[in-house]
Amino acid sequence: MAEHYSSFERGGRRWLWQRITAAFLVIVLAFHFFLLHFVHHADEVTFAMSSARMEQWTYYSLMILFLVTATFHGVNGVFNALVNQGIEGTRKKAVKWTLVAASLLLIVQGVRTANAWAGITLLPF
């Protein structure tokens, strides 16, 4: 009889969050495609239009949530794929913390970009 195998820990929440973020991403991507490919065609989209959308707090907050969700979903998936391939010990810890650092950098830069589009200035540099 085949054994149950999963890189996710039993009773852990990463498995559940992977599924929740996937469902959220499908919904937000559908919204994105509808808005930016059916309502506005690619040749109509300008920086000014994108900036105007980002100035609306609902759109801005949705894009920030999309950034954080997509980052978690992707990094969690990569980490668990590596665990499935047999990474253990020190290598596993090094990969984990490298992915955490890369995620934080990605989120910080994504928020900085969103703030620039929305006209939000938090720091003088």
Rank of each mutant, 00 (worst) to 15 (best):
T21S: 13
I87Q: 13
M63V: 11
M49G: 12
V83N: 11
R19T: 07
V45P: 04
A52E: 05
A2D: 03
A116E: 09
W57N: 04
A2F: 07
N76L: 06
L65H: 02
L16K: 08
R10T: 03
R53Y: 10
I87K: 15
Y60L: 13
R112T: 09
W15S: 11
F31P: 00
T71W: 00
M1R: 05
A48G: 03
F24G: 08
F125Y: 02
K96T: 01
L62I: 13
E55R: 14
L99N: 05
L104P: 08
F31V: 02
F66E: 01
G119N: 07
V108G: 14
F72H: 04
M49E: 01
F34A: 14
H37E: 06
R53H: 13
H40S: 00
R19P: 05
Q85F: 05
V108N: 03
V111M: 04
G86K: 02
M49K: 13
D43N: 05
Q85W: 03
R19Q: 14
L67S: 11
I64L: 15
I20D: 03
W57V: 09
T58Q: 15
N76D: 15
L106Y: 12
I27W: 08
G86Q: 08
H73C: 08
F8R: 03
H37N: 15
L25D: 04
L123K: 06
F38E: 08
F34Q: 10
W15E: 14
L29R: 05
A81F: 11
T46P: 13
V39C: 06
Q85I: 01
L104D: 11
F33Q: 12
I120S: 10
M63L: 14
S61A: 15
V78L: 13
F72I: 01
V68F: 09
Q18F: 02
W57M: 08
S51R: 11
V28N: 14
G11A: 10
S51E: 04
G119Q: 05
A52W: 00
D43I: 00
V68P: 00
V108P: 01
R14T: 13
A22L: 09
L16N: 01
I107M: 11
F66Q: 09
F79D: 12
G119L: 04
A30F: 12
R112G: 07
A2R: 08
M49C: 02
L106K: 13
H32R: 11
